[in-house]
Amino acid sequence: MRFECHNLCKVYLTRDGSVTALDGVTFAAEQEEFVCIVGPSGCGKTTLLKLIAGLLEPTVGRITFDSDAADGRLRSALVFQEHGVFPWMTVLDNVAFGLEMQGVGRQDRYARARAFIRKVGLSAFANNYPHELSVGMRQRVGIARAFVADPQVLLMDEPFGSLDAQTKLVLQEELLRIWKDNRKLVVYVTHDIEEAVLLADRVLVMSGRPGRIREEIQVPLGRPRNLSDRERPEVVEVKLRIWGMLEDEVRQGLEMPT
């Protein structure tokens, strides 16, 4: 599985005219690759994910991929920053949701969901509702749901963005551990450079308003990774390079409030 974005543009029409969210985004992603997209807030990262997920249509450009689905769409699973899990379903039903939509029978989908619930350490909470869980636990539910559905592409929109630093570290390691056993193509959006470098094989740096890919950077780290890897000089250099690119964007964003 490989997919390519060709010259993706997205223009939103608003009451006061049009806003260009994305302007000519082109990149490719390979099977089993972990791609992180970093960029300043408002650079159209979420729009890009929704285009790949097929929730939005590009104004210009197209996405090519080889599909195994009957309706010819790219089977993706999107993990949202928050609000992604259904409050009216138990953890078990939430995790099994993707399979339910695919028409998998009750027993089969519960068995498969339980396996992933165990992997994210929520076995004791399978029959609880999301409001009984912490924010971090809810994000685990969202991640388990995405993996269980066995998509071709896993799309993650700052899934740990609203978590405290410690919880974030734990969940990042957990994500890498699960991903090691279920290698999928992941496109992971974040504004956190540290996170991008820790997780990704390749980092795409976006510019803000309108969003473009400014540069692609290969992360000079093998796998498995651990926390101390982030302090290695070649990694620090990569982080500084990314920050160098983003700093101007962030300053511009601050000077030109919209």
Binding site: K50, A53, G54, L55, A69, R73, R75, S76, A77, L78, F80, H83, G84, F86, F97, G98, M101, Q102, A149
Partner: peptide
Amino acid sequence: IYFEVAENYGGR
């Protein structure tokens, strides 16, 4: 978001 999740997983 809940409608987007359902659509994303191919809900009819």
